[in-house]
Design a protein around this nucleic acid. Structure first.
Lengths: 338, 338
DNA sequence: GGGTGACGTCGAAGCGCTTCGACGGGGGAA
DNA sequence: TTCCCCCGTCGAAGCGCTTCGACGTCACCC
């Protein structure tokens, strides 16, 4: 591999000039810059990442901690991952993948060894054990999700509480009086996963506020569980006409189950969801939904980190407002009896 | 951050001794090693990754290129990713994530800048444009999947051809005479994705060999498509009694569709699949399947890379033999008419 | 006309680690 | 006893880059 001294010699300048010409950190004459670039191209020069990291104390790598736990929907995680990687590349950074299993030790390791410049965490819990670690690290971090106590930390996410509210309000406006929430798998709540809890809060609060009867049902991520929940919902709330689904894996099976139970969507039952748009739009009954904007979240998470790395200051909390897209799965409540 | 000189001073030895004590690359007396370890612990010493990479010309990072293309089943990809990351950590390496979109330039970049020591590629095509690049890189690589011309490259994967054969043989042994393959989405074949093609070859060859009537149907990854394929299969091959499914996304919807069309599995129709064991085992009819051993493949891919990095020599091709697990979805053909 | 910056470039000093060669001392072989 | 070699440790030389301070040049202004 050609090194910077080779480029310098080839261009007839000093190594430092090559560095400045390529980085733009000091003014360099057009003529010189041209020669340097030409030499770099001719030699196929690639700066050595380790050397650069050592000299500049910047590795240009971000750590991304992905969850692998039961109950989280893998395709959604992957969407985040991809959007983070893509955004990072736009900022000339690469992404190192850590699994949740690596735990706090993993975070500390990549931070302390200066392997990464900054960290992004997903799947934050309300009482996340990593919070104090993040505060003590000398490297900036962004969490995708909101813990209960985030003082001094930077968080970003969809406003899940508002998303839950928005879905209920939509149903209420359509005249529905009895609504149900089909939520994430039980273990997700048990762990205290932030976004899942917030949806429940928003759902319940909005239902109470609008005077609706409501019930919450966690649901395993299997079609069989979806069917059981559908049956249970109808048994326990016979007057049910509106459902909010916050569980990507069972959205489709759930609708199928309702239909097999003799309910037409949306004639008999209105369904809204909080999930990625592609999912909601791609079902045989396109579902009215609040989008889970993973691309935007990932991108903005990276943007926040970049600003912090540049010494800038960023808001501690970034809550993306929910956007409800009307599709074919919701309709005004018909008063006709079942 | 404490540096190696701090540890050396604290332990009363020279920096090089610290390095040797910690790496074990030269004999160090027990007493000295103990003092060094003690000092390192006391100071919370973490070697600087960049410095280490520069001095040793080893970054201890592997690149993993993940596919994001249409038609690939995301959870399966994630399984590979996790197994690679986990295996890499066991070998004291980290994993840098690259998306397919980064393309050859991305590969060249991380390799040439010495950001990574080695590369793992997934989703290999029969005529993969990256092959010649890989050959020209000075860093070792392993491909998960087999291109047509892999001379000089290292590949590992399930033997998909044999897997296809194995499924057919199983059905043939059970007396089935008319079989169908429900394959991956059409675009996967159009791209020339290696493993998909090989399943088709194996399926067809084994069917011909056993004198079975057979047909191949690519299938989009949606329940609606699954249903269409089920109907088409029965229409075009009315005597069909055996099906091989190589498409994780539609396995369950397909079985549902068959059942809704009045066929009982396995009484009227035997179904086998090539997919992760958890998927096959978790359905309401547990499906006889050839396992997709993503954990083993990822782990062995990393193992191969490690051996190459250590200057060892490894086989160019590693084909994992298919293992068929009998479950409830296959049964001897009943001669009774439908 | 001399002072003053700004511009463009260079040289040198590290960044923190690994590794090579060297060296003193002690034990085993002759 | 002598020689040799190996063990355990040290010092120094980088690895390839960035960055800081310095310096010469030139334009500009008073």
């Amino acid at each position: 591999m050609a090194k910077i001294t080779d480029v310098a010699r080839h261009a007839g300048v000093s190594p430092s000039t090559v560095s400045y010409a390529l980085s733009g950190k000091r003014p360099i004459s057009d003529e010189t810059r041209r020669r340097v670039e030409e030499a770099a191209r001719a030699l196929g020069y690639r700066p050595h990442a380790g050397a650069r990291a050592l000299a500049s104390s910047r590795s240009n790598v971000l750590a991304l901690v992905v969850p692998l736990r039961a109950g989280i929907h893998v395709p959604v995680v992957m969407q985040f991952v991809v959007s983070v990687v893509t955004a990072a590349r736009r900022h000339d950074h690469d992404v190192l993948l850590l699994t949740q299993e690596e735990g706090e030790e993993g975070l500390r390791r990549v931070a302390d060894t200066a392997l990464v410049d900054a960290l992004i965490l997903m799947d934050v819990q309300l009482h996340d054990p990593r919070l104090s670690l993040l505060r003590s690290l000398e490297r900036p971090s962004v969490m995708i999700g909101f813990p209960l106590e985030a003082d001094g930390l930077t968080c970003i996410d969809l406003d899940f509480r508002a998303a839950g509210e928005r879905c209920v309000e939509h149903l209420a406006q359509l005249g529905h009086r009895v609504v149900g929430l089909v939520g994430s798998p039980p273990e997700v709540y048990v762990r205290g996963t932030a976004f899942a809890q917030r949806v429940v809060q928003g759902f319940t609060a909005a239902a109470d506020r609008a005077g609706l009867a409501s019930a919450v049902h966690p649901c395993e991520a299997t079609p069989a569980a979806a069917r059981r929940v559908a049956e249970r919902l109808l048994r326990e709330q016979p007057a049910l006409t509106g459902v909010v689904v916050h569980n990507e894996a069972v959205l489709e099976p759930l609708i199928d189950a309702f239909e097999q139970l003799g309910l037409r969507v949306p004639a008999d039952l209105s369904v809204t969801a909080i999930c990625p748009d592609e999912l909601a739009a791609g079902l045989h009954v396109p579902v009215t939904s609040v989008a889970l904007p993973s691309a935007e979240v990932g991108e903005r998470a990276v943007g926040l980190l970049m600003r912090k790395l540049d010494g800038g200051t960023v808001p501690e909390a970034t809550l993306l407002p929910p956007a409800l897209t009307l599709r074919a799965s919701t309709a005004p409540r018909t008063v006709s009896p079942r």
